[in-house]
């Protein structure tokens, strides 16, 4: 975990699979990620529906297709903050920050580890039941988010270069 904190910038591609109880088939999308220490994260979805999500500190800027960007204040929306923290926290390798928002359980070793995150905020817990982040060495390979209603979203991450 501490090893993660060394890397100043990460670039990666991702493939995301979302399973919803309301849908009879999963939704798949692909794109790329850019993380810069300490708190910048850009998630750009290229296919099938272009979208850019940039988090910098407490500000989230969401741009869907050609629509004007929407700026959200993470502090005002704890649910969203928890979702962002679940992805950004492991990338930053900041266990202290993670422990502020989640109950953290770590298993495995450097060759293959899993972080289980349970949100502490009650309002956030209604939306995000738990997050599971797995990886090896200093790379995060999978982020799995499980919603309270059983809906699930899994992001496989492949580092670039």
């Amino acid at each position: 975990m501490a090893g993660l904190a060394i890397v100043p910038e990460r670039r990666a591609t991702f493939q995301e699979t979302r399973r919803f109880a309301a849908l009879d088939q999963p939704l798949i999308s692909t794109g790329h990620l850019l993380y810069r220490r300490p708190s910048y994260l850009a998630k750009t979805t290229d296919w099938p529906q272009p979208e850019s999500l940039v988090v910098d500190g407490g500000r989230l800027v969401l741009t869907e297709g050609n629509a004007p960007p929407r700026v959200l204040d993470l502090g005002g929306i704890p649910e969203l903050r928890t979702l962002v923290d679940a992805i950004r926290g492991p990338l930053a390798g900041d266990l202290t920050a993670l422990r502020r928002a989640f109950t953290v359980t770590a298993t495995g070793d450097a060759g293959g580890w899993i972080l289980d995150l349970m949100p502490l905020d009650a309002r956030a817990a209604r939306l995000l039941q738990r997050a599971q982040v797995s990886g090896r060495e200093t790379e995060v390979t999978t982020v799995r988010l499980v919603q309270a209603n059983g809906d699930e979203q899994q992001m496989k991450i492949r580092p670039l270069s």
Binding site: R18, F20, A22, L23, L27, S29, K43, T45, P48, Q49, E51, L53, L62, E64, E79, L80, L83, L127, L128, Q147, N149, D151, Q153
Partner: peptide
């Protein structure tokens, strides 16, 4: 469309 986007949790 919203389910495919980052605002999916709100859509649900």
């Amino acid at each position: 469309r919203q389910l495919r986007s980052s605002t999916a949790p709100l859509a649900i």
